[in-house]
Amino acid sequence: MNIFRFAGDMMHLTSILVLLLKIYATKSCSGISLKTQELYALVFLARYLDLFTDFISVYNTIMKLVFIVSSTAIVWCMKRDRVVRRSYDKQLDTFRHYFLLAASFALALLVNEKFTFQEIFWAFSIYLEAVAILPQLVLLQRSGNVDNLTGQYVFFLGAYRAFYILNWIYRYFTETHFSRWIACISGLVQTALYADFFYYYYISWKNNTKLKLPA
């Protein structure tokens, strides 16, 4: 474990806590893409298949459980909770995320560490995580004004993978057998997708104005 990875995990956890806060405090999920939340729930379920077979550390197991439970709870809440689901922007959240699912799975069948069930699902979760934010970014551009908590949620979600890239650079130089090309390249793509969001987020923070993404 290194500081970059720990900081990345904490930012990831913070993004989920901010989202939970927004939904439970405002009893609203306006501006949140259900499709992105469904994709994230799938990412964790596909990646943590080894949750009960490979014990790495207490921290690792607890964080995996937190991510699986929180992501499924958010999807459940946006679909089933009578109050919350009323504020879901169904007509704006129209990104065809099934294409992202199919493309990620097809790529995982072609490019993976080993052609085994667990490795293919791990690669699938890595590719899917890289593109899972797209429905959310499209929804933000369509809904124009972004409320603070939603903006902070997307910001922390983007920052976490940027810290993971620093972690991979650090591990590459400090560990002999370290090579994670699949995660690294996918992580770069994932962070790059946030580039324009980070730019407009920085501008709104600098000018102390409401965050607006150009349509």
Partner: peptide
């Protein structure tokens, strides 16, 4: 082994 070190991350 190599693959175990790869999967110690979240």
């Amino acid at each position: 082994g190599l693959s175990s070190s790869l999967k110690d991350e979240l």
